[in-house]
């Protein structure tokens, strides 16, 4: 009789359970009504089963978002874990949709599910990709804009993982500042 090693049939558990959300812009509905939970997963295998099954960001209609958040955190500023938080924001040029968008998003997902920010991964709430005609955006959301050590570590690792050149500056903004901004840009708390 053959003994099968557990490695061949037990799926690889992730540190956290994650929820993937989809937002489709329908102006006749409220923002919250346009936000749908797609699925949750907590293993490497189930992450890929979901990822391989859904459309790439570059194939989505303008106005759509994907959000990947830890189970129990809703992808909105109002959630208790986001209220005092902020985001590292990557803004992409129109040319980058073809070259970088899908690659950046997959790398972002792998940073999250693989706990790529070391002990500071606990500060991560999730990530959001906004597909927009005027320019796409990807952001990693963290829980507390005052946690300087966590935020700077996450920013440095994230920039490296995306392969963003050192001379390109990325900014971290609090959700409170984003929510109350008057012009088109929010001031950076960290760069």
């Amino acid at each position: 009789q053959k003994v099968i090693s557990p490695e061949s049939y037990i799926k690889h558990p992730l540190q956290n359970k994650w929820a993937l959300w989809f937002f489709k812009n329908d102006k006749s509905k409220t923002w919250q009504a346009n936000l749908r939970l797609i699925s949750k997963f907590d293993t490497v295998e189930d992450f890929w089963a979901l990822y391989n099954h859904i459309q790439l960001p570059s194939d989505l209609m303008s106005g759509c978002d994907y959000s990947l958040f830890k189970d129990g955190i809703e992808p909105m500023w109002e959630d208790g874990r986001n209220r005092k938080g902020g985001r590292w924001l990557i803004t992409l040029s129109k040319q980058q949709r073809r070259a970088d968008l899908d690659r950046f998003w997959l790398e972002t997902l792998m940073c999250l599910v693989g706990e790529g920010f070391d002990e500071h991964s606990d500060d991560v709430c999730g990530a959001v990709i906004n597909v927009r005609a005027k320019g796409d955006k990807i952001a990693v959301w963290t829980t507390d804009y005052e946690n300087k050590d966590a935020i700077t570590h996450i920013g440095q690792v994230y920039k490296e993982r995306l392969g963003v050149p050192p001379k390109v500056i990325i900014g971290y903004q609090s959700h409170a500042d984003t929510a109350t901004k008057s012009g088109s840009s929010t001031k950076n708390k960290f760069v």
Partner: peptide, 20 residues
């Protein structure tokens, strides 16, 4: 400790059918 997986490890599972 934390279950940390690097990109090479994760990518290695992308096209392996999972036993469910």
């Amino acid at each position: 400790g934390k279950r940390q997986y690097n990109r090479v490890f994760l990518l290695g599972f992308q096209f392996i059918p999972a036993c469910i």
